[in-house]
């Protein structure tokens, strides 16, 4: 089977002022279709760069990236990008915000009935029924997050790229939304690449966890998480296997954090 995303010996250098910074160093990675892949690493390790390249918003320096076997040129409209900030348009209601992707690009051609049906379906899926006419200002942080997720799903992309989507939320809300994300994703067949700095979050959600090193970002550990699905994010962390995965991955992460501390 062709991997849905394939990084082939990818490096990337940025300039911070006049100083070149190597964000990624010769990275090789195949993302399997339909998997939930979590990427963990210290800040500045190039996790977001990885997503930006998959989304076609950034070109690799050296090496190649393929999406379903094809080189990516320009924005990759087969994916959805979910950022840490919800970035809803404050002047649009929940319904109008979720409709936004259907007003542009290839989705504009959908029939009005189809658009209305999809918006209603995804509003119901994320549990925002009854809040269609509300404006983002009137919603709680969790509800805004749900609206953002619905906006990303409504145009039915194959792959979801999530960049620390729950990073700014409090612990309880984070758990709630993780549970809802799993419920939405499990059985959907979509590929999900989830970037986080929270190892517990990564293991709770993912089929596979990748640990990246500090700059230049390289993969230093990969673990297949063979915990049964459907998962219960509230209790999964108390399973003994969870502890084993955590120890194993934490060892890799810690080693790098220690050397990173020493370097600065």
């Amino acid at each position: 089977m062709i991997p849905i995303v394939e990084f082939d010996d990818v490096s990337k250098v940025f300039f911070k002022g006049t100083v070149p910074i190597q964000a990624l160093g010769r990275l090789n990675l195949s993302v399997r279709e339909g998997e939930l892949l979590a990427v963990v690493g210290p800040s500045g390790c190039g996790k977001s760069t990885l997503l930006n390249m998959t989304a076609g918003l950034m070109k690799p320096g050296t090496g190649a990236i393929r999406y379903k076997g094809q080189a990516i040129s320009g924005a990759n409209t087969q994916v959805a990008y979910v950022t840490q900030k919800d970035n809803l348009l404050p002047w649009r209601s929940v319904e109008q915000n979720i409709r936004l992707p259907l007003e542009m690009g290839p989705h504009k051609r959908l029939s009005e009935a189809e658009k209305r049906e999809r918006v209603a379906r995804y509003i119901a899926m994320v549990g925002l029924k009854g809040f269609e006419k509300h404006y983002p200002k009137e919603l709680s942080g969790g509800m805004r997050k749900r609206a953002q997720l619905a906006r990303s799903l409504v145009y039915e992309p194959d792959t979801l790229l999530m960049d620390e989507p729950f990073g700014a939320l409090d612990a309880q809300l984070k758990l709630m939304l993780q549970a809802e994300l799993l419920k939405t994703w499990e059985g959907s067949g979509k590929t999900l690449i989830f970037v986080t700095h929270d190892l517990t979050e990564a293991i709770s959600l993912a089929d596979r966890v990748i640990v990246m090193s500090g700059r230049p970002g390289r993969i230093i550990a990969i673990a297949d998480i063979r915990l049964p699905r459907p998962r219960d994010v509230f209790h999964i962390r108390f399973q003994p296997e969870f502890g084993d995965y955590f120890e194993e991955l934490w060892a890799a992460l810690k080693q790098d954090l220690a050397s990173g501390e020493a370097a600065t």
Binding site: N52, A55, G56, L57, A75, N76, T77, V79, A80, Y81, V82, T83, K85, N87, L89, W91, L100, P101, E103, M104, G105, P106, H107, Y155, P157
Partner: peptide, 26 residues
């Protein structure tokens, strides 16, 4: 207008004109 938002809508298939009409001008 947040640069992230523009990235998000580019991936949704937005053209430059879409970004101007749907986000920048409003």
């Amino acid at each position: 207008v947040d640069a992230d938002l523009i990235d998000v809508i580019k991936v949704m298939g937005a053209s430059r004109w879409n970004a101007v009409a749907k986000v920048f001008v409003p």
